[in-house]
Design a protein around this nucleic acid. Structure first.
Length: 271
DNA sequence: AGGGTGACCTGTCGGC
DNA sequence: TGCCGACAGGTCACCC
């Protein structure tokens, strides 16, 4: 479910409300992708100072350390005061003075990891290799083109890889490539500077729009208010195999790349 | 070194 | 209706 926009929408939906909260108790459910990295009691008594995001990770700055949260494929966070007992797929509950933060994650590819800070090896292992933030000023078109020149694989795979740029997942990779008119199978190093600039722009545009619209509502995304995205995401190609291209009318094609589905238009994305 | 594949886990959907 | 396989928003560990 969550690519960068969904993670950012989640962050925006509870960051202000949890800031300043004192952690009272932490309850762990079934194992997630990685262990918490400390006894749950170590979080108790700490305060939540801020909630940031790096790629698809949420970073909770605590008074004594850093809590990393990843939503995996099926995770969602809820922050509120009305709280029933944890359900079958609720695997992390953090009770605070201002409300409870609950991670719901049926597939359990998500994770909650406590580290002493960003320089902690455990944090470095997860955050250290991440590429530039696509919605930051440091995401530069010329540098992006340089990064693409180093990669011999298909551009779609490079986008998903997270080293050239972070946060672009399977939905928005297809969408951005469509917007830029680039075929997903094109080798990254063959993309000219002007076309790399188009793609750079398309990535920013697609992600910014998705954040503004409250994230994709495909399947069951909801923010930490428990609300679904405010608007439907208008996908141009994703999950539209066989349907007419919204620009030229030709049926959208689908294929597999690295065991993930890719969607594209043969006419709008010739190379 | 970089590219390709399997693995993690549960739910849902389409086809027979 | 029931069963079975394919597939789902991510990423890491492992092969060659």
């Amino acid at each position: 479910m969550p690519e960068l926009p969904e993670v950012e929408v989640t962050r925006l939906s509870f960051a202000d409300r949890i800031a300043g909260a004192r952690i009272e108790a932490v309850t762990i459910g079934k194992p997630l992708r990685w262990p918490l990295g400390c006894p749950p009691q170590q979080l108790e008594g700490q305060h939540v100072l801020d909630v940031r995001r790096r790629g698809k990770y949420l970073l909770l700055d605590l008074s004594g350390g850093l809590l990393l949260i990843h939503l995996g494929m099926s995770g969602s966070l809820n922050f509120g005061t009305e709280f029933s007992a944890p359900g079958r797929h609720d695997h992390f509950d953090m009770l605070t003075s201002l409300g409870t933060l609950r991670l719901h994650d049926p597939r359990r590819f998500g994770a909650v990891v406590y580290t002493s800070g960003e320089s902690d090896p455990a944090a470095q292992k997860l955050l250290g290799r991440l590429g530039v933030e696509p919605l930051s000023e440091s995401f530069d078109a010329a540098a992006f083109h340089q990064a693409l020149k180093l990669r011999k694989t298909a551009i779609k795979q490079v986008l998903l890889g997270g080293e050239a740029v972070v946060g672009v997942g399977n939905i928005y990779a297809s969408e951005a490539l469509f917007l830029a008119g680039i075929r997903p199978t094109t080798k990254a190093f063959r993309i000219s500077k002007p076309r790399a600039a188009l793609l750079h722009r398309a990535i920013q545009q697609v992600l910014t729009q998705a954040v503004a619209k409250g994230g994709s509502t495909l399947r069951n995304f909801s923010n930490a208010h428990g609300m679904a995205g405010y608007f439907q995401l208008e996908a141009m190609v994703y999950d539209r195999a066989g349907l007419p291209c919204r620009i030229c009318g030709v049926p959208i094609k689908t294929m597999r790349q690295g065991q993930r589905s890719t969607f594209y238009c043969v006419r709008c994305q010739k190379s």
